[in-house]
Amino acid sequence: MKRDKTSCWLIILAATLFTACYSNTDNKYAAGKGGKIVYGAPEAYITDEAIPPAAIAGPAAYAPAIPSLADGDTVAIRVDVLHKKISVSDEVSFWAWTFGDEVPGPVLRVRVGQTVKFTMANRSNLTAEVSPPMPHSIDFHAALVNPHDKYRSIAPGATLHFQWTANYPGVFMYHCGTPVILQHMIAGMTGMVIVEPAGGFPGTVNRELAIVQNEFYLKPMGDTAYQTDVAGARARQPMFVTFNGQYRRYMQSPIAVKAGERVRLYVLNAGANLTSAFHVVGVIFDKVWIDGNPRNEMQGMQTVLLGPSSGAILEFTVPEKGIYAFVDHSFASVEQGAIGLIEAK
């Protein structure tokens, strides 16, 4: 009888400890500020103010780089819209519509619980001689806000200000939401937001890289210039599918790592239309967080399927010295440029 009682207490103790442990781990990745979801934000507003020299500010960097987190509960981020000539390959360039200076736009990094004070100037009026000044907007998939208010289109020359609070950890997309959205997206207006859990992502890695996949739909306009091809986009027939905005980027200049290193890839399929089957030749992803949320963990995956606007965090250990190709395993996309190399020395 006494032995039964002791066993019973031991079981209860074990269960309690297990639950406490599990809850503790789970809470690290909880959504919301202090575990409480923050819905909405103050009304957006528009100003007509002087434009600073830099088109981006705050925790923002161009992929594959990932910016450092900013301290504090509030973080200021600026991403201006430009109309800018962008090269997709050595021979193909076009007048893109961009967030910041590149396509895709900058990777932004914030932490769960941080409130983003966002600013965006529409600088399309500064290049009127080559591209018509037009309204633009931004839609953050990481935010819980009224899109009618925050994601409003602003006129050329205007500056938009609004706030949003990061509630869920993950890899999220942002894009222009001004009609025709398809045209704004294929013109280059997409990018990635990384939201870290309040206590950071679990585990330690040696290297972190951001990879944004997107399609370019272009048609010739004269001898060397190209322009966006909306009909091609409707037909889902891209001219290029790229990682970080350039045809076969990282083929001649592979991303350098070391054998045995632990690598974390933040991957986003910005679309606009196609699904990505992301794969790294020679490795298995031992951890995959679907949409970048550690609560959505999968293990031992060869390929990660990402629909347009889907993101993921993939981790692997570099097995040995060598050259590892990363591809969209839908191999037509490889032919169109969705291939890069990681070289382990």
Binding site: S131, P132, M134, P135, T178, P179, V180, Q227, V230
Partner: peptide
């Protein structure tokens, strides 16, 4: 309208 401005599609 302008051919290079997509806004008319709205």
């Amino acid at each position: 309208i302008q051919t290079r401005c997509p806004c008319i599609y709205s």
